[in-house]
Amino acid sequence: MIPQGSQIGEENQEEVSVLPSLTYVLQASGQRIGRLQLEGKEAVKQAVYKALSTRRYEHLIYSPDYGMEWSWEGISGRSMVESELERWIQEALLPDDRISEVTQFEYAHEPDGVKVSFTVITDFGNFRQETEVNMNV
């Protein structure tokens, strides 16, 4: 028997609420968490910093899709390094639903690693972010 039910009218539908983007201030230099709270773009900037600073699969407290996964095994040549860095950074940041896109990658190759800067497009506005990746690890 096929169920025959009434249709859900507009009055029965739940409203989707947007949760605030609040987080506590992380003071990386003193390795402390402050009592002040960040929200909006500043909270996303801190989330980007934290995601890129955490290696994926190393800490049981985080889910398997949190952090940046990278390994230099089998990677050689500038174009391959740049391609993999772009992929790793996007995979680390795009699971955050406040971030819609990561674009405009720029690279500075150094003897022991690569500095990469990129634009993060968020619900709260865009910003440039820079990170260094050591290739000797």
Score class of each variant (00 low, 15 high):
Asn12Cys: 09
Gln13Gly: 00
Glu14His: 01
Val16Tyr: 15
Ser17Trp: 14
Ser17Leu: 15
Val18Ser: 08
Leu19Val: 06
Pro20Gln: 06
Pro20Thr: 05
Pro20His: 13
Ser21Arg: 13
Ser21Leu: 15
Leu22Phe: 06
Thr23Glu: 07
Tyr24Leu: 08
Gln27Ala: 02
Gln27Asp: 14
Ala28Leu: 09
Gly30Arg: 00
Gly30Thr: 12
Gly30Val: 11
Gln31Met: 15
Arg32Pro: 07
Ile33Asn: 09
Ile33Cys: 13
Gly34Trp: 09
Gly34Val: 05
Arg35Thr: 12
Leu36Val: 06
Gln37Met: 14
Gln37Ser: 07
Leu38Arg: 10
Glu39Cys: 07
Lys41Ser: 10
Glu42Leu: 05
Ala43Tyr: 02
Val44Trp: 00
Val44Gln: 07
Gln46Asp: 08
Gln46Val: 03
Ala47Glu: 02
Ala47Lys: 04
Val48Glu: 06
Val48Leu: 01
Val48Met: 07
Tyr49Met: 13
Ala51Met: 05
Ala51Asn: 08
Leu52Asn: 02
Glu58Tyr: 15
Glu58Val: 13
Glu58Phe: 15
His59Met: 14
Leu60Tyr: 14
Leu60Pro: 08
Leu60Ala: 04
Tyr62Asn: 00
Asp65Lys: 06
Gly67Arg: 00
Gly67Ile: 05
Met68Thr: 03
Met68Cys: 00
Met68Tyr: 01
Met68Pro: 00
Glu69Arg: 07
Glu69Cys: 02
Trp70Asp: 03
Trp72Ile: 14
Trp72Asp: 13
Trp72Met: 10
Glu73Thr: 15
Gly74Met: 02
Gly74Thr: 05
Ser79His: 10
Ser79Gly: 01
Glu82Lys: 13
Ser83Lys: 13
Glu84Gly: 10
Leu85Phe: 12
Leu85Lys: 15
Leu85Cys: 13
Glu86Phe: 12
Arg87Ile: 10
Ile89Gly: 06
Gln90Ala: 04
Glu91Asp: 02
Glu91Ser: 10
Leu93Gly: 07
Leu94Pro: 06
Pro95Glu: 08
Pro95Trp: 11
Asp96Val: 04
Asp96Gln: 07
Asp97Arg: 10
Arg98Gln: 04
Ser100Thr: 03
Glu101Gly: 01
Val102Gln: 10
Thr103Asp: 04
Gln104Ala: 08
Phe105Glu: 00
Phe105Ser: 03
Phe105Met: 06
Phe105Lys: 14
Glu106Tyr: 06
Tyr107Asn: 01
Glu110Lys: 07
Pro111Glu: 09
Asp112His: 09
Asp112Cys: 03
Asp112Glu: 14
Gly113Thr: 00
Gly113Gln: 08
Gly113Pro: 01
Gly113Cys: 01
Val114Asn: 14
Lys115Leu: 11
Val116Ile: 09
Val116Asn: 12
Val116Arg: 12
Val116His: 11
